[in-house]
Write a protein that binds this DNA or RNA. Structure first.
Length: 708
RNA sequence: GGGCGGUUAGCUCAGUUGGUAGAGCAGCUCGUUUACACCGAGAAGGUCGGGGGUUCAAGUCCCUCACCGCCCACCA
């Protein structure tokens, strides 16, 4: 192992100049518990190609590897295993034991993904390997939380969560299964003299209503907007105000919406806009908490009870059957109950003074907001997107951005460093003492991921690497995590360092199967990159992923395509063998080219220039196509073919010129292809006898990029 | 419902500021005592999704329609 994946080693050995330009990048950390799929392979192929290109350019290149704890996914996985094998829930095990089990699982499975990542040929600096939950990253996360809290940007407030009454837990959107069911839509009024009828599939929640919302343009209800009514609904006294809100559909039902702030996400949002009270009427066990006839009933029983009551009172106007999507919990099958719960938030709109900033448009010492950091980093040009389209998507999202909920009701993750004792609250890492209880929640996994570009460089303690390699040159990642990850990195880096996390954003698309379908377990259309590598070689896999794949667009992979590029690797091997045998007796001294050979040297020059131009715009697919075209159809089909007679029948000067040309063409081809096909090109390079290799370096990987 | 992509050769995709349509793969014909059959030579194949507009000139710019796909919000 050469150690040249480390930029310091390259400097020590004279491969990179100590003052050489930096090219730095972090690997989007794959899930510790995952196995390598084509999406990873694409990411690694693109990134490794870029990294190798820049390394050969003589830059100081750093590419940092790591793995991600993927909190929810990992905890889920382990919980499912335990449920299956031991028939126990996490509550049966308890927090401490559960975390031990998860850590053990992570420890066992992480070597798989690490090993597989290396296998792709990734020239990552493994001496800097990081895990989102290791000690250094833990310190970074705690530091970040405390600093943001101190700056007043983190606060605690209620939010409607997806509550699973059976599992007694909050669940993420990913764990929701939508089931289509028929439901009854009831249309009724709250009382005899209430002026507007409303429709709902959940009449039991109406005891929590505080308003009726109509569309501001709805002529039927214009005159009622702003009025309010006191009614007694199913023994519960309600105060209902008629409000106007744009979100109401005039055409649905009666065009009027009964607003239940505490038990519906949209209604919560309406309550936000209109400052409505938000009484909770359903508890964690999905039972009614009101007094009167509904007291203590399960929601399903309460629904029937309300329907009966409406009928008895003569308030029910009609019932109809509709189909609707019911949210159920993936694991327990229970119907999700939306409930308000205290959560931690990051306020993206609150002004604060940024002490130090290198971001264009945000001077040090100025007052700014996190949203402005995210916005100006891009609009003022500190960050460039390779594909314009993603810049627009990013900006649209930023402009509509609300507070970021950072607490998660799971156990695996960075636990929130907040302690409670009675009404007292303290924000610190360790327990303040006897009787203090830590917040049970953990942080959103993207909170720690947001720190990734600098937590991997040793922040907040070791600042040496930080000064050298941050901001990183490039982030290359899937377009599906532009909001989750890319935007959060900009936020975190901007707030904590006053820097952008990266200068350029390259987003790749989804890898689909040969028919353009998403790769999924249920379709069984997975193409295993490592299996393909065994059959056709890793270079063929890498090239088939990059060829014909423009940045940001989805691509297709098929075994046929991979096989095709195996042919190319084979062709390259054969060409090299032939060229080396044709030039074994060439003179050591420099010779002068014949006129016709000199023209070909010029072609090479143009080729190199074209490749560099494409790399500069991240069109590595086009660069590859150009090289492929030259190597196969110009170099092999024409130049080598013509050489056969020149070397046998030509005069000495023609022969020697041609031999020198073949050597140059071969070396250039190998160098240009090395970033894409590191295995074959390096293997061929090792077959070149020393007298032919002359003053070139022993490893192609660190050889100098060809001169134009 | 809101937004964004895509539609170019049989298949997968390029096509930079408008200037005579490109590549790979597949297919077809021919060739090869050979660096490589995981090969070579050659030919064929497209009214650039439909319609309209701007222009001397449109795959490219504008409008419109159709179909496919993705993202966000989801229907009380």
């Amino acid at each position: 192992h050469s150690g040249y994946f480390s930029p310091e080693k390259c400097v020590t050995d004279g491969i990179a100049h100590p003052e050489a330009e930096i090219f730095s990048m972090v690997l989007p950390p794959p899930n510790v518990t995952g196995i390598l799929h084509m999406g990873h392979a694409l990411m690694l192929a693109i990134e490794d190609t870029l990294v190798r290109y820049h390394r050969m350019q003589g830059k100081r290149v750093l590419w940092i590897p790591g793995t991600d704890s993927a909190a929810i996914a990992t905890q889920n996985r382990v919980e499912k295993d335990i449920q299956k094998n031991e028939r126990k829930s996490r509550h049966d095990l308890g927090r401490e034991e559960m975390l031990k089990r998860i850590d053990a699982f992570v420890e066992e499975s992480k070597s798989t993904i690490i090993h597989q990542t290396r296998r792709v040929g990734s020239s990552l600096d493994w001496s800097r390997y990081a895990y989102t939950m290791d000690d250094t990253r833990y310190e970074a996360v705690m530091e970040a939380f405390i600093r943001m809290h101190t700056a007043g940007l983190i606060y605690r407030s209620n939010r409607i969560v997806n509550w699973d009454p059976k599992g007694q837990t909050t669940i993420s959107d990913d764990e929701i299964v939508y089931e289509e069911r028929t439901a009854k839509l009831y249309t009724f009024t709250y009382s005899k003299d209430f002026p507007i009828a409303i429709s709902t599939t959940r009449p039991e929640t109406k005891v929590g209503d505080t308003a009726v919302a109509v569309h501001p343009d709805d002529t039927r209800y214009q005159h009622l907007i702003g009025t309010s009514y006191d009614v007694v609904f199913c023994d519960v006294p309600l105060h209902i105000t008629i409000i106007a809100d744009e979100s109401v559909e005039m055409d649905f039902g009666t065009g009027a919406l009964g607003v239940t702030p505490a038990h519906s996400q949209i209604d919560w949002a309406i309550a936000d806009r209109h400052n409505l009270p938000r009484p909770q009427v359903i508890n964690e066990y999905a039972k009614m908490t009101v007094t009167g006839r509904l007291s203590g009933l399960k929601v399903s029983d309460a629904r029937d009870a309300v329907a009966t009551w409406l009928e008895e009172e003569g308030l029910l106007i009609k019932t109809e059957d509709i189909t609707q999507n019911v949210s159920t919990a993936e694991r327990t099958g229970a119907i999700i109950e939306p409930l308000p719960k205290l959560q931690w938030w990051v306020d993206v709109n609150k002004p604060f003074v940024i002490p130090h900033s290198e971001i264009v448009g945000i001077p040090s010492g100025s007052t700014t907001t996190l949203k402005d950091i995210m916005r100006l980093s891009v609009t003022e040009g500190s960050i460039t997107f390779v594909t314009d389209r993603y810049e627009r998507i990013y900006m649209d999202w930023i402009n509509k951005l609300g507070p970021w909920c950072i607490s998660r009701q799971i156990w695996f993750g960075h636990r929130i460093p907040v302690w409670y004792k009675g009404d007292d609250t303290k924000v610190q890492i360790t327990s303040p003492g006897e009787g203090w209880v830590q917040d049970p929640d953990v942080l959103d996994t993207w909170f720690s991921s947001g720190l990734w570009t600098f937590s991997t460089l040793g922040w907040p303690h070791n600042k040496t690497d930080l000064g050298t390699y941050h901001p990183t040159s490039l982030i290359e990642t899937g377009h599906d995590i532009i909001f989750f990850w890319v935007a959060r990195m900009v936020l975190m880096s901007g707030f904590l360092l006053g820097q952008v996390p990266f200068k350029t954003v390259y987003m790749h698309g989804l890898v689909r199967d040969g028919q353009g379908r998403k790769i999924s377990k249920s379709l069984g259309n997975n193409i295993d990159p490592l299996l393909m590598a065994e059959k056709y070689g890793m270079d063929a896999v890498r090239v088939s992923l990059i060829a014909g794949t423009a940045p940001g667009t989805d691509s297709r992979i098929s075994e046929d395509k991979i096989r095709g590029y195996k042919h190319f690797a084979n062709k390259l091997w054969n060409m090299s063998r032939f060229v080396l045998s044709s030039i074994h007796d060439m003179p050591e001294s420099n010779i002068s080219y014949t006129e016709s050979d000199n023209i070909i040297v010029g072609e090479l020059s143009t080729l190199i220039e074209t490749v560099e131009k494409h790399f500069a715009t991240y069109r590595i697919d086009l660069a590859l196509e150009t090289i492929y075209q030259f190597v196969w159809h110009r170099f092999a089909d024409e130049i080598i073919e013509d050489s056969k007679s020149i070397i046998v029948h030509g005069d000495t000067s023609a022969k020697q010129s041609r031999q020198a040309l073949l050597r140059t063409c071969l070396f250039t081809s190998l160098k240009l292809l090395h970033p894409y096909m590191p295995y074959v090109t390096e293997a061929i390079w090792q077959h070149i006898p020393n007298h032919l290799r002359r003053n070139e370096r022993a490893l192609l990987m660190v050889s100098a990029w060809p001169q134009r």
